[in-house]
């Protein structure tokens, strides 16, 4: 019970201190809006293109809302040594890091529903398979948050966290089938696409929104879950090796 008091308060502190600040909320609203507008205009077609664009916008909103936020906040706390306070807390290390990432996961999940709400005014969402859509959104948020944690451990300066985040994020936008189908990628890039977690999340989202997906849902969600586990374990191992050395 006591460790859950710590868990809840770490989550609450991060939400209040970082994620619920006005600049982040406005970023969470404006960013999906800008992406939706950009791809809507680029498609050159009418409202019928919204279902094809929506999964990509949802995935990008999560990715950008989560990865760099977590990487920056953890790097900031490591730099001013307040992260040591958490490392001294009498709670299991795994639970501590889950608490630290859960704020970003919630923020990313909330970001995902901004374009969905906007799309509700433009298209009929009754055909969306929410039983696939929601787990896919949550797993993309978890994977993105753990990617942010992995980045945070690898860098020492806040600006490095931003730069290193983009190193992962921008290739993902173009390689993971968010806006351009993987089948259209050059042969030598296809293996890379399947090595990225967002490919499986985007596939599940596409399937849930308009039915066009490559892999069975269960495979998409299981592979995404496996990416989450591997990224989390790698991050924990790196924190133990680098920060408790």
């Amino acid at each position: 019970m006591n460790r859950w008091i710590a868990f809840w308060n770490i989550l609450l502190k991060d939400m209040r201190t970082y994620y619920m600040k006005p600049p982040n909320i406005s970023w969470g609203l404006l960013f999906p809006l800008a992406w939706t507008g950009m791809f809507f205009i680029r498609s050159g077609s009418g409202l019928e293109s919204v279902p094809a664009v929506l999964p990509g916008v949802v995935a990008v909103s999560i990715l950008f809302g989560t990865t760099s936020m977590l990487a920056v906040t953890v790097t900031f706390e490591k730099k001013n040594r307040s992260f040591e306070r958490l490392l001294l807390a009498p709670m299991p290390f795994e639970l501590l890091m889950l608490a630290k990432t859960s704020g970003a996961i919630l923020f990313g999940t909330a970001n995902a529903f901004v374009p969905v709400i906007m799309a509700a005014f433009l298209m009929d969402l009754s055909a969306v398979n929410w039983l696939v859509f929601v787990p896919a959104v949550v797993l993309i948020a978890v994977a993105s948050a753990f990617l942010g944690l992995f980045i945070a451990v690898a860098v020492s300066e806040v600006f490095e966290a931003q730069t290193f985040s983009n190193f992962f994020r921008f290739p993902m936008i173009f390689l993971c089938g968010l806006f351009f189908p993987i089948s259209g990628l050059p042969v030598f890039l296809k293996p890379l696409a399947y090595a990225l977690p967002l490919t499986y999340g985007a596939d599940a989202l596409h399937g849930a929104v308009h039915g066009g997906h490559m892999l069975p849902y269960i495979v998409d969600l299981l592979v995404l879950g496996a990416f989450c586990a591997v990224l989390f374990m790698l991050s924990l191992r790196n924190i133990r090796r680098r920060w408790i050395a």
Binding site: R3, I5, W8, N9, K13, T17, N80, L86, P90, M91
Partner: peptide, 20 residues
């Protein structure tokens, strides 16, 4: 090494919460 953006009171309450 407390949290610069939190008040003195909130910092102490947060540290207490870390100990359950």
């Amino acid at each position: 090494n407390l949290y610069p953006e939190m008040t003195g009171y909130d910092n102490l309450c947060f540290c207490a919460a870390l100990y359950g």
